[in-house]
Amino acid sequence: MMPRITMDEVLRVAHLARLEFDDTEIEVFTYHLGEILDYIGKLNELDTTDVPPTSHVLPVCNVIKTDKAWDSYAREVVLENAPSAEEGHFKVPKVID
């Protein structure tokens, strides 16, 4: 049987999620993720021809708020959570755009 997920795929997903693993970890995760996919794969045994796609697990629709503005948080409070801040801004390593 084809493995459900390859090491390359795991590496790629890890890269997209900005996660770094060593070779052993990648091997372990590939194995674990494969097992999870096997388990979920059971669902494929069901005939879902007449079942509409589910886009949310809650049987609730149309949750909305009125368009009224409230006070925002004070800037000092907001910037307390910043890894680095200067002159009222969040400070991050230079990005070129």
Binding site: D67, A69, W70, S72, R75, G88, H89
Partner: peptide, 21 residues
């Protein structure tokens, strides 16, 4: 008047990071 998913005000020209939550 307010943002898409919260109650912060929508407005141009406010001081940086004064319209957040």
């Amino acid at each position: 008047e307010s943002k898409l998913f919260c109650r912060c005000k929508v407005g141009f020209g406010a001081e940086a990071n004064t319209q957040t939550c």
